[in-house]
Amino acid sequence: MILTATLTMVGLGAFFAIVLAIASQKLKVTEDPKIEELSEALPRLNCGACGFPSCHEFAKAVVEGKDIDTTCRVGGESAAEAISKITGVRKTAAKKIAVVFCGAREGDKTKKAVYKGVATCRSSNIISTGAMNCAYGCLGFGDCMRACPFGAIVMEDGLPKIDPEKCVACGKCVSACPRGIIELLPFDTDNLVVAACRSRDPGSVVRKNCRVGCIACKICERLSGGVFYVEDNHSKLKTERMEEKVDWDQIIKKCPTKTIVKIK
């Protein structure tokens, strides 16, 4: 009985294996070898920064000469080299970095409850917008850290810290953050100074909720000549005017709540 059973299974398995082997020869799909070659040179992390679901798809689009942005932010020199071989154009991507628009560390923000649920930002955010009084700030459970394929984010005092060396601006953390407070900003300018707060609450409420929240006092707007501007009760940065000559240090010093921080 055991022998029959074993032999039957072996026989069947072998039969299907042979059929499949023949079929795979007959139905072979020939792909442009360039695609495979380029695909090898790409980082193969499938991070999606280029807008394609995988490095392979991106390589295919490049080889087929589709009208796309043919830069791989992650691959660096070797990828740029490989891509330029096919497109004939040498392009390097503008360096960008993910910036967290909240500066409140553990202790800076007041809490309305103790959250003991699943330790992710997403679940915490679902329950009446988190345990702290501020409905806009960082929840501190590190969903962005876990989403980062490059290990560029570490959590420090309940706030993500982004390593500019490792960050390639793939945007995974941007979509992972349930608060939507991570944004990709250009990093090849001389200075990168932002107002790290996204609170839409009026200043009086922010004062109660958070030690470092923006109270929309407009001092930065005045000092920077409009590079910073106040909208929705918080200060925003006009990224297209970042290159202008502004006394950034002065602004950082004068901000009464120390909301404005220097990234670079």
């Binding site: 299974m9 069947l12 398995g13 299907f16 059929v19 499949l20 079929a23 795979s24 139905l27 799909v29």
Partner: peptide, 16 residues
Amino acid sequence: LTIASLVQLVEMFIRK
């Protein structure tokens, strides 16, 4: 086993 093999076959066929 049969189903798995058949699916493989169909997959190759569709891909082609």
